[in-house]
Every structure is written in structure tokens, then in C-alpha cells.
């Protein structure tokens, strides 16, 4: 009986660990956080809209959950309907700073009406 209980206990622990792992907040696939930001940045929402003239507009809201200001870069990849990147000035690296325990917003506008999707990279940069 004790042997069965011991085996069941381990099964329960593994099942609980798997369940908790599945609940961990992962950024959506369109947003790629540098591993150095894991545990410090949480992506809360992504809003996509298309302007009347057909340009995709994106607004990503995140939170710096650490007790230190975060100095970051972000960069958009603008993708057409075939998934190919559309090169543009609007895909350049841009600085963004998030104060400790504060929300921050990243806004982007697609360079051309041919853009239908995006990828966003967020990376840490050296403090000034």
C-alpha cells in the first residue's frame, strides 16, 4: 500500500508541475523576448487594427515587473501575405525604456498596405 502511495505521490507531483508549467505566461508567437528579459517583462496585450487606407497598426502593451528600470530596444519585422519581410525604415531598431514596475507601450505602423502581419523583437540594451 505504501509503495502504491509513493508511486501515486510522484505521479501527482509530476502532473502538478506540468499543469503549472502550462499556466506560465508566455509571450505570443509574434513577439520574441530576448532571454535576458525573461522574468522581467510581461506582455499584457496586443492590439492590431487596419487604418482606412489599409496600413496595419500595432500597439503592444507590456509591464516591467522588476524593481529596476529596463532599457530596451524593439524592432518590427513587417510581413506580407506570403510571410516575406517588407524592408523599410519602419523596421529599424528603436529605443524604449520602462520604469520599474511600470507599464510601457510600443506602437508601430506598417510601411505599406502589402503588410498583413508582424513580428516584434524586444531586447535589452546597455544602460546609458
Amino acid at each position: 500500500m505504501a509503495k502504491v502511495f509513493r508511486r501515486t505521490r510522484w505521479l501527482l507531483i509530476i502532473a502538478a508541475a506540468l499543469t503549472l508549467g502550462a499556466c506560465a505566461t508566455l509571450p505570443p508567437p509574434s513577439i520574441q523576448l530576448d532571454p535576458s528579459l525573461n522574468g522581467y517583462v510581461t506582455i499584457k496585450s496586443i492590439h492590431k487594427s487596419v487604418s482606412p487606407s489599409g496600413l496595419l497598426q500595432v500597439e503592444v502593451t507590456g509591464k516591467n515587473t522588476s524593481d529596476q528600470p529596463l532599457y530596451m530596444y524593439y524592432q518590427f519585422d513587417w510581413l506580407d501575405k506570403n510571410g516575406q519581410a517588407v524592408p523599410s525604415l519602419l523596421a529599424a531598431k528603436t529605443r524604449v525604456t520602462a520604469d520599474r514596475n511600470r507599464w510601457f507601450t510600443i506602437r508601430g505602423v506598417a510601411p505599406s498596405p502589402a503588410v498583413t502581419d508582424f513580428r516584434l523583437y524586444l531586447d535589452e540594451r546597455d544602460k546609458p
Binding site: 487604418s51 482606412p52 487606407s53 496600413l55 497598426q57 525604415l89 519602419l90 529599424a92 528603436t94 506602437r107 508601430g108 505602423v109
Partner: peptide, 23 residues
Amino acid sequence: FEHAAMSAVQSMLSSGTLDKPGG
């Protein structure tokens, strides 16, 4: 220059002032 140009273009495009009535 890249940063200044990008900020200007992003602001212009998202402001809607370049959306010509009637296309």
C-alpha cells in the same frame, strides 16, 4: 537621422493626415 526620420514617418502615417479622401 534614422531615428528622426522613422519617428516623423510613423507619426505622419498613424495620424491619418495622409489619408486622401477618396483614395
